[in-house]
Design a protein around this nucleic acid. Structure first.
Lengths: 232, 232
DNA sequence: GGGCCTATTGACCTCTCGGTCAATAGGAAA
DNA sequence: TTTCCTATTGACCGAGAGGTCAATAGGCCC
């Protein structure tokens, strides 16, 4: 009973690399092997958490032996940080491009951003799980918390604040909106929590994504727009 | 180097029970020993996560030997669930009492609830950490996710919805507010995320609690109240 | 084709963990 | 005081963890 899930899962892991294809010992360039290992590690960390993940299992998932992992990464902690680092970046490039390209009322831009966030939540499970991982391990890895601060929060909040300020300047939002620093995190929180609930409870029991998105957009626009402005 | 933190922390743990007081082997009634063990386990799980926590360390924290833990709990998983169970309950009783006792406009009740939530976030670190723990281990413990659903979400959401509906019936909130199921989680999310950010980043780098609270209350009331109603 | 660099292996070490259990002793009841 | 129940101990086990390293072989370059 003790480690039943672990055992049974381990058997069924045999990755594409390990199964059949090619000779047992194929030499690859580091530029090719590294992402393989990172992908395997992401899966393993996501499923078992940091302490629960085993280097041997990561190796097995990558179709490789444990020793090789240590050829590429000094240790478990470094591997973990490398995994996180390799995953967070693309999301922001996308959001930043979205804002840069957008033309039209700021209220619509804000609605677009909110819907973008919910869409991402609905889309890839990987991101949700990785976010959970960061939350779970943040206080055991001070550098990881600092990394989240630097690469996620400190990037996302100014993005939102920029949109708010632009909306005020355009005369769309109430002037007071530009004042407080507290509004940006309040606006981000619901989509973020939606991600967490989704990850914890699955689509069945978690609060409905679409319903939250509608209520969120409605609440925000009503709260921000100048009185009398149309809701679009 | 490997487990440096572990070792050093272990030494300094010596709990009140272990340090000096009384003979080494004091016999206690289960009603007295059980909460001791639960408290020790909460600390240990909070600091090291589920997989990272060690039964021996829990025992040491409780000033007791490992064998005794197994006299009280069948295994690690059961101990973990018992810890969670023993912690979540009191919060809700308090919120429910708050709502039951409150007299006045529903908008003020809602503001009071939001401020209550932020106050709790600011108050005890234990609750934050425990919440993190639930998030982190939910998908490795399906029963734990079910427990969170049953004992937290499924209790909190109707609480909020009740207040919203009452506000609509009282003619304070816009009639559409009572419709969607999505609004309640959207209202809860910012305080919850505030808790998570606080836990991850500490008071220094996390978004400011007071600022979030102000922006949150303001946004919500503006979004819900009928046009023209005073903000209080 | 022959060398050489290095990606890759697999056996090995040590340590800690969750869990077991027979033996022991504290303390309430008699 | 004696008895008896059971809370408590401490030694023990096998499994699996992270990490090391000398030996091996794949494939680019000349």
């Amino acid at each position: 009973m003790r480690n039943a899930q672990v055992e049974t899962t381990r058997d069924s892991v045999g990755s594409a690399e390990a199964a059949g294809a090619g000779p047992t010992r194929r030499r690859l360039a580091p530029a090719e092997r590294t992402p393989q290992i990172l992908a395997a590690a992401l899966e393993e960390f996501a499923e078992r958490g940091y302490a629960g993940a085993s280097m041997a299992a990561v190796a097995a998932r990558a179709g490789v032996t444990k020793g090789l992992i240590y050829h590429y990464f000094p240790g478990k902690a470094d591997l973990f940080k490398a995994v996180v680092r390799s995953c967070v970046q693309p999301v922001f490039s996308e959001a930043e491009r979205f804002i840069a390209v957008f033309e039209g009322p700021k209220a619509e831009l804000l609605r677009g951003l909110i819907e973008f966030a919910y869409a991402r939540v609905a889309a890839e499970r990987r991101e949700r799980v990785l976010f959970k991982l960061i939350i779970a391990e943040a206080d055991r890895f001070p550098e990881l918390a600092a990394f989240y601060d630097a690469e996620v929060l400190s990037r996302a909040l100014p993005l939102v604040r920029g949109v708010l300020r632009a909306g005020v300047e355009a005369g769309e939002f109430r002037p007071e909106v530009g004042d407080g620093a507290g509004l940006a995190p309040v606006l981000m929180a619901p989509a973020t929590m939606a991600s967490i609930w989704q990850m914890m409870l699955g689509e069945g029991r978690a609060p409905d994504l679409a319903a939250m998105r509608e209520a969120h957009v409605d609440l925000v626009l009503r709260g921000l727009l100048r009185p009398g402005a149309p809701l679009g």
